[in-house]
């Protein structure tokens, strides 16, 4: 009897020790030497690895600063940063959407950025608080299948999607971050009541639910739906691979909230011990060559002037005209949006 008890005890001890002793050891994607003279920075990155890696490598090559990146979902990284608080060793937070940045700013975890960085930004990319900065832009669009929907019949406003003639033919992604930012904008421009009304009406009209934007575009090609509201660069990605892709996209009428322009952004953490290097990183991301990479390579809108125009994108003027009048900072109230979406039964 004693023997088995002893073995069980040792097993429990091992378990306890491992549980308490290992929290510090998390897997990192790159090794972490501090050997480089120029120093290093730690980036928590909510953007996809394949997209961001070339920029990181270029930065490392040009400046000699080592970059350790931790990839993940933007909202989860934000939560981690909040939980870590002062203990964090992150220097830069690169987010896919604005609300997480706002969250951190409100929790007073970000360091102020150099004023000069904001000089070159277009109007739609200027945050009021200057606690974080936009790194690239994207717009919400209306995607459609030209074989089944005439250009003349396209709805002029996102509110028209609740028409009976679009019953069961529209696709959306309520759980997606960009969609939620769009709903936040709608709340700003039209108020909570109208927004809730629209959400319920869309549901009643049989709008099909997809987990993300890409499946919406694929579903358009597959013939599952005829209209969809994703971000603008997804279709362009498909078309780059297959020019005959049977989907097209357009803006709603100018100023409609369905054309919301959003940004990905970055901030420097207050607790960062490498402020200089962090600033250098942000400056690099905003440099002309990086912005060119974002726009030509990933079809996003640059936030810096003087960058080569991507022909597949509409011009900057057209974008400005189409965009609704929504301040970037107003997109920060994600909690309220989630509550509304829950009330509508979409979450």
């Amino acid at each position: 009897m004693l023997l088995a008890r002893r073995v069980l005890l040792i097993a429990l001890l091992t378990l306890t020790v491992s549980v308490l002793g290992l929290p510090g050891c998390e897997s990192e994607d790159t090794p972490n030497p501090d050997a480089s003279e120029a120093g290093s920075i730690e980036v928590y990155c909510g953007r996809s690895q394949s997209l961001v890696e070339p920029i990181i490598e270029r930065f490392e090559k040009e400046t000699g600063i080592t970059v350790n990146v931790r990839y993940g979902k933007t909202s989860q990284l934000a939560l981690t940063l909040q939980t870590e608080g002062e203990r964090t060793d992150a220097d830069v937070f690169w987010a896919q959407d604005v609300s997480s940045l706002g969250l951190l700013a409100e929790a007073d975890l970000v360091a102020p950025l150099d004023e000069k960085l904001f000089e070159n930004l277009p109007a739609w990319a200027q945050p009021a608080s200057k606690k974080w900065i936009a790194t690239s832009g994207r717009a919400r669009v209306l995607a459609y299948a030209p074989s089944r929907v005439n250009e003349a019949d396209l709805p002029q406003s996102v509110f028209d999607l609740t028409d009976a003639k679009w019953q069961g033919r529209v696709g959306w992604a309520p759980t997606n971050g960009s969609f939620q930012a769009f709903v936040t904008a709608m709340r700003q421009t039209h108020g909570d009541a109208r927004t809730l009304e629209w959400l319920n009406a869309m549901k009643a009209n049989g709008a099909k639910v997809y987990p993300k934007n890409t499946p919406i575009v694929q579903a358009l090609a597959d013939g599952e739906i005829d209209l969809g509201i994703p971000n603008h660069y997804y279709l362009l990605r498909f078309q780059a691979k297959d020019p005959a892709f049977p989907v097209a996209q357009a803006f709603f009428k100018d100023g409609d909230v369905g054309n919301l322009v959003m940004v990905a952004g970055a901030c420097v953490l207050k607790e960062s011990k490498n402020q200089e290097n962090a600033d250098a990183f942000i400056r690099f991301v905003l440099s002309t060559e990086s912005q060119r990479y974002f726009t030509i390579g990933n079809n996003e809108y640059p936030v810096v002037s003087g960058v080569e125009q991507n022909e597949k994108l509409v011009s900057e003027e057209a974008l400005r005209a189409a965009a609704p009048a929504v301040e970037l900072d107003d997109l920060q109230d994600l909690e309220g949006t989630l509550g509304l979406l829950t009330r509508a039964g979409l979450l």
Partner: peptide, 10 residues
Amino acid sequence: GAAGDASFGF
């Protein structure tokens, strides 16, 4: 992938 083209210098 999005970053697969050598023409951007990346």
